[in-house]
Design a binder for these strands. Structure first.
Lengths: 237, 237
DNA sequence: AAGTGGTCTAGACCACATA
DNA sequence: ATGTGGTCTAGACCACTTA
């Protein structure tokens, strides 16, 4: 839904995509039904096939169409529904909410990874990684409690960083581009440690986010972040 | 990370994207630094400019590059990190976990919407919508409790559906394509009603998902889904 | 065997931001 | 004013899949 200057025109591929979307939403083309092939549509819309192709690929990415060579393009039976979340820099998130950001490292040590972590990141149990625990604050109130394992072998230069003085969240986001990420979100009753560090009553509901990132050299970091139940994750787009 | 048949080759645009990604990850091209323009890269990679353009757009969508006309292409300073979640059809989700699916409608009635819902979906308070409450079961155990408001005006044919006999989740996913969705995820301590319907102790942590979908005619439906704390939402990709 | 989407190319023109 | 990305085109060949 990007706005456009009055004199300007939307790209033709976008217009075609909108029109096809409209035909699907208004049931001119029904679930599972085959739609005309790219060459036909190109003629209908007065566009090159490449342009139609771009529009239809867009809709296929959205999950509205299913395309197969030789079999043609069909309206998806189960439109795949997707929601995208942005992985924030915590400081920016706190500050954009109008709060003062604070950050405290609770512990930093090299430790052999326990079995659970080993399995999550695909490294052998007992391998020594950097284990970091920290709390982020907004206006002095705990905002997020991080329990993080970092694999220095995955990112050049990471060994020289002292995460007691450099914010691990920011450093990693800025310096360790990843190629793959896995995220799991769940709710839990706060453990005693969670409750103490987040300054909430024991057993209070917390939102738990577990995120692991990889690049081609292997796992970069795995994070367990705990949020008080006032926290809301919102989809982007 | 799609697998390919041995004899087959990756598309050239993909290869170029991979190579550029590698240069960024290995710091040949640093954060904020300008990279060669499309014409240069086309020569370097022995490809047409359109192919390079496709590759760079891909990386810009991933958040790794920032592109501006006239100013050129730069490695992003804050690589935007995204995670995508798929919104499942509950029955398929339950069955793919190897459980038997069950579904019970608790209440269906037309009611004026309260202020909170009105604000969330952008309709005037007091407008009459269909209010539906239902529980989904896996192997007889409560899996998800839905509290849903449906706007029949947004989707043709919806007035003829009796959601006591037709699964609202499935009907809407299949029949009401949307153009926009908002999702909010949080943790809460279960209310008495949540606890009763999910068969868990009162005050136990639950995962709360609030989702509203729109098409061009207006809001289609807004849903508050509650999950027991055993539930985990996983990112797709 | 043949139809359909997937991709690439060379060239062109345009839109936009900045020097 | 000019350089850069954004987009489109016509044509081509290829890869896959199914009829």
């Amino acid at each position: 839904m990007t706005e456009r200057a009055p004199g300007s025109t939307a790209p033709k591929a976008q217009l075609i995509a909108s029109e096809v979307r409209r035909r699907i939403i208004e049931r001119e083309w029904r679930q599972g039904q085959r739609i005309p092939d790219e060459a036909d549509l190109a003629v209908q819309f007065g566009a090159a096939r490449a342009t139609v192709n771009k529009a239809l690929q867009l809709l296929a990415d959205e999950g509205l169409l299913e395309r197969r060579r030789r079999a043609g393009t069909r309206v998806a039976i189960d439109p795949v529904r997707k929601a995208t979340f942005t992985i924030p820099i915590v400081r920016e998130q706190v500050e954009s909410a109008g709060m003062d950001y604070g950050h405290r490292v609770i512990a930093q040590r090299r430790s052999p990874i326990p079995a659970e972590i080993a399995q999550r990141i695909g490294l052998p149990e007992g391998q020594v990684l950097l284990h970091l625990r920290a709390v982020h604050y907004g206006d002095g109130k705990p905002f997020q409690f991080d329990d993080r394992w970092i694999n220095p072998a995955a990112v050049p230069g990471m060994n020289e960083v002292d995460f007691r003085h450099v914010n691990a969240n920011e450093w990693l986001v800025r310096n360790a581009p990843y190629t793959r990420t896995e995220i799991a979100i769940s709710a839990r009753n706060a453990s005693d440690r969670d409750a103490r560090l987040l300054d909430i009553p024991p057993r209070e509901a917390i939102l738990l986010l577990q995120r692991t990132t990889w690049n081609d050299s292997g796992p970069i970091t795995t994070l367990r972040a705990a949020f008080p139940n006032s926290h809301v994750m919102n989809s982007k787009d």
